[in-house]
Write a protein that binds this DNA or RNA. Structure first.
Lengths: 244, 244
DNA sequence: TAGTCTCAATTGGTATGACCATCATACCGG
DNA sequence: CCGGTATGATGGTCATACCAATTGAGACTA
């Protein structure tokens, strides 16, 4: 019927215009956009509206604002999704973290398969290095978990698919808790290393099926160890809950 | 070694305080929080700062602002992730849309499998209804695509995993383009319906393996039809970047 | 009485104008 | 050549006013 006369809030129109220019590549990462006062003049709007628009873009991870330096375009696109998932898990009445485990059991075996197919020498080396770091940190939970994260992240990187990498990055934080449980399970790290090595060998041999199977075994073992740690040590299990 | 001295921007502190109350459950979905002017008074800050904080929370999908009605807490936590992925795909050097297809081929078969295992009568009915709508819209691309989206979303819903649902929601928008291609391929929609029906039957029989297989077949056919549509229409094919 | 209409109050959205905090740069003195 | 300092640019905050959309109460009409 009629054209929507005011296409929504004013600041949204400004967001759209700037977003478009970034998406189209007219504005690239590192570029600095005009001061707020200038933008306000260009858009024919007040500085308030421009500012709300820039604030929104900053929250989306498209730009960064800093006093004295101005507003610059950034390529930090995965940051937003990362915090979103983290938030979602927390706000979702944190019961049933199984949601995350389930998603992980869906994607990680396929990630391993793709990684085995596509990993180059450098990535294989990175995997080996991560495993060695875990070997050397079997009694140092923080370093072990960090190396463990790197291992899985390198696999995601080897898929050559940035979407998958972002997805993995976004759930890494949430896995720290579970990995602590594994670490506290007797023999948990050692059992994990068996599967890690199997994954490394599969990647070296480009054995897609072996990689998938190894990851499945790994996740099953992780799930079992985590459950065992919860059952066996009610004290540490209780320590998980609060953390407000 | 030393702590950062500055406590950060003022509006960030306000964001943190309100966010905490939402995450802790003190503020639940539907709750309405005080007017901006009141909040400004409570926080001992100006309305500007409060407003920037609320704007940030709105962008995160935690609250919704509307003139006259106030600011209410929402549970729409997937919205942020949705727009994030969409943005990432667009800003990320839009060549190689295969990234998305690849991710889809990883998760959708497993979604179908989980859905077949867990779908209740209402969800099966919703699947059937979506298929019927597609039957009735074989010559009306917009309605067909909408029903197609609903079909896949219902599958995700049936997994009972909100993370998976959010992930699918975030992908839906980006699939519109591909679905238009399918629709333009001769016999594409009809072939799609065959697989849709197979998925429905698998869900009815709780046949996990059949569901997974049907979805794999569906995606393979979709990929083929999309490619065929591109090959057949070089003009539109030129609009897509050659894959890396 | 029931329905609708009007209008004022509430509340988010925008506009100004000012001032502060921080950073970059150019300038100056050693 | 170096280091501190003044100056300007720029984002962050404040105060105030007005606009726009929504709500809800009270008046008006059928």
């Amino acid at each position: 019927m009629y054209q929507p006369v005011g296409r929504g809030k004013l600041f949204e129109q400004i967001v759209e215009q700037i977003r478009e220019r970034i998406v189209r590549g007219e504005l690239r990462a590192g570029d600095r956009l005009p001061p707020e006062r200038e933008l306000a003049l260009s858009f024919g709007a007040s500085r308030t509206a421009v500012r709300e628009a820039l604030k929104t873009l900053a929250q989306m991870g498209l730009v960064e604002m800093a006093p004295g330096r101005g507003t610059v375009v950034t390529d930090n696109t995965s940051h937003a999704m990362r915090s979103s998932i983290s938030l979602m898990m927390r706000v979702g009445r944190l019961r049933s973290p199984d949601y995350l485990v389930e998603l992980r059991e869906i994607i990680e075996p396929e990630i391993a398969a793709l990684a085995a197919k596509r990993a180059d020498a450098a990535e294989v080396a990175a995997l080996r290095e991560a495993i060695e770091r875990m070997d050397g940190a079997l009694h140092h939970s923080e370093a072990y978990i960090a190396a463990d994260n790197d291992f899985h992240r390198t696999l995601a990187l080897a898929t050559r698919n940035p979407l998958i990498l972002s997805l993995v990055d976004s759930i890494v934080d949430l896995l720290a808790e579970q990995r602590k449980l594994i670490f506290s399970a007797p023999g948990g790290p050692e059992r994990g290393q068996v599967n890690h090595r199997a994954l490394l060998e599969a990647a070296e041999r480009r054995d897609v099926e072996a990689a998938r199977a190894a990851m499945r075994a790994h996740l099953a073992q992780v799930r079992a160890d985590a459950q065992a740690a919860l059952d066996g040590t009610p004290a540490s299990a209780a320590a998980i809950q609060p953390k407000g």
